[in-house]
Simulated scan of single mutants.
Amino acid sequence: MLIIKFSANELYLQKTIVMIVHDFSKSKSIINHFVGELRDVKIQKDRMRFRKNLERIGEILGYELSKTLEYHTVTINTPLGTKPTELVIQQPVLCTILRAGLPLHQGMMNFFDQAETTFVSAFRHHSNGNKEFEIVVEYLATPSLQNKTLIISDPMLATGESLANVYEVLLSQGKPGKVHIVAAIGSKPGIEYIKTKLPENSELWIASVDEELDDNQYIIPGLGDAGDLAFGKKLSK
């Protein structure tokens, strides 16, 4: 188990690294409709619909991301002939942060159906009932990541600390050749933070970006707790 302490007032911006950010809220597309339903306090009460919307967002972002992968030409035999077709050279490794990331992860798996999968747990642990918290990483199941394309999916990119800590833990299983982050909603401070922690050739694929975090380091306006909305409220730990 790895525990990393983090103060709610500490967002370290130590250096500037170029990360490509694909913000899909800047253009008109159906993904905005799905994000709108995720945020809507009435619609989000339907857990199945909430999960399905996260899954749809995962599919859309996965499709857009797939355009950056490497392909080679393979001749496909059909009942009536042959057809040269561009196929992915190597399937990526899909990583999700339990439990909130599961529906988004499912959307990615619908398209990358031969991908290897990594599961990791990371959560905020508040001690003494105050605003300071620890990021706790206590479970990891993964194949080797050495020189592979790694896609980490997490619906809410708030402070970015959980994602950065997860990436640090994953490095114990090999250094990826390329890192992609997939998120439904993120905050500008969180995005700036992960820019300092991930490789400079990393890319972020995100459906919507919000301006700020509140005093508890939750995204404003955000949508609430994605894990609770998808699977029900959990007991405090």
Rank of each mutant, 00 (worst) to 15 (best):
K5P: 06
F6M: 10
F6L: 10
E10A: 13
E10K: 15
Q14P: 07
T16I: 11
I17K: 11
M19T: 11
M19A: 05
I20F: 15
I20N: 12
I20D: 13
D23C: 00
F24N: 06
S27N: 15
S27F: 15
I31T: 08
N32E: 09
V35N: 02
E37C: 03
R39W: 13
I43T: 08
D46F: 02
R47G: 04
R49C: 07
N53H: 12
L54I: 00
E55N: 07
R56F: 10
I57F: 02
G58Y: 09
G58W: 09
E59W: 14
I60P: 02
L61D: 00
Y63D: 05
T68N: 15
E70W: 15
Y71R: 09
Y71P: 05
Y71F: 06
T73Q: 14
L80N: 08
L80D: 04
L80Q: 06
T82D: 13
K83S: 11
P84C: 10
T85R: 01
E86C: 10
L87R: 07
I89Y: 12
Q91K: 13
Q91P: 01
Q91Y: 02
L94K: 00
C95T: 07
C95V: 06
I97P: 11
L98T: 02
L98C: 05
R99T: 03
A100S: 13
H105P: 05
H105C: 09
M108F: 14
M109W: 14
F111V: 00
F111G: 00
Q114N: 10
E116K: 12
T118P: 08
H125T: 11
H125I: 15
H126D: 15
N128Q: 14
N130Q: 00
N130L: 09
N130Y: 00
N130F: 01
F133H: 07
F133Y: 13
E134H: 11
E134P: 01
I135R: 04
E138C: 02
L140H: 08
S144W: 08
Q146H: 14
N147C: 12
L150K: 02
I151A: 01
P155Q: 02
A158M: 05
G160Q: 00
E161H: 13
A164I: 06
N165D: 09
V166N: 02
L170W: 13
L171G: 08
Q173M: 04
K175S: 12
H180D: 14
I181A: 07
A183H: 01
G186R: 09
S187E: 03
K188N: 13
G190W: 07
I191R: 07
I191G: 04
I191H: 05
E192N: 03
E192R: 05
E192L: 06
I194A: 08
K195T: 00
T196F: 03
L198I: 13
E200W: 06
S202H: 05
E203T: 11
L204S: 01
I206T: 01
I206R: 00
I206Y: 01
S208G: 06
D210H: 11
D210C: 13
D210G: 12
L213A: 12
L213T: 15
D214C: 05
D214E: 10
D214S: 08
Y218M: 10
P221T: 09
L223Y: 09
L223E: 08
G224L: 01
A226H: 08
G227D: 04
G227I: 07
G227C: 03
D228K: 06
D228A: 14
D228F: 12
D228G: 14
D228H: 07
A230R: 02
A230Y: 06
A230Q: 03
K234Y: 14
S236I: 09
S236A: 11
